[in-house]
Amino acid sequence: MNIYPFLIVTLLSLIVLASGCVSNTNLNQTKTYSQNGIYFVYNGTWENANVSSPNAVAGVGDPNTVNPQTHEPTTFILIQKPNSTLGTDLQTAYNQNYATFFNNTSNQRVSDANITVNNNKAFENVYISTSGGVQTEMRAVWLSQNGQIYVILCGALPSNFENQQKNFNLTINSFKVQ
């Protein structure tokens, strides 16, 4: 009995089925957020999140990392606009915030740097936050646009933090105040 036709059909089936699977992992898809006076681009597989953080403007997260009990994603990007920094420059606001931030032992400093975002001066603070026994590595980018200071807080599990940098950079570099 000739088995080659069956092998060919099986192979073609696997190829077609695999193509269907590949189409679902298109990481090049992106979404845009344009509300509350800000605009940014984020990963196409992520979704908007309900934000209860202080002075939060917007939040997006990876739905595949949501804790079913707390509904909190471990991979997320949160945009905050601190009201308390109105009238102060970016450097001052940044220094004031982190002057006491690491007194809380649940926050461990990793790095602190001056960066440039779209030719604008910005500050970046990377730290590990522990909450409920779960560690989350944070990358907080402080930048000022149109006289307003915004903080783009990017978080992920430490094991996944480096892998998410491209998603974080996508949002940080596309962030604009409308």
Binding site: Q35, N48, V51, P54, N64, P82, L153
Partner: peptide
Amino acid sequence: QASAVPMTLNQTAFSTSNHTTNVTNNT
């Protein structure tokens, strides 16, 4: 469908506890 799971963010980058606002009713 997985993305339809409601997500809640309550992280913050601030050192002090400010008031809590939502995206829908901010500033």
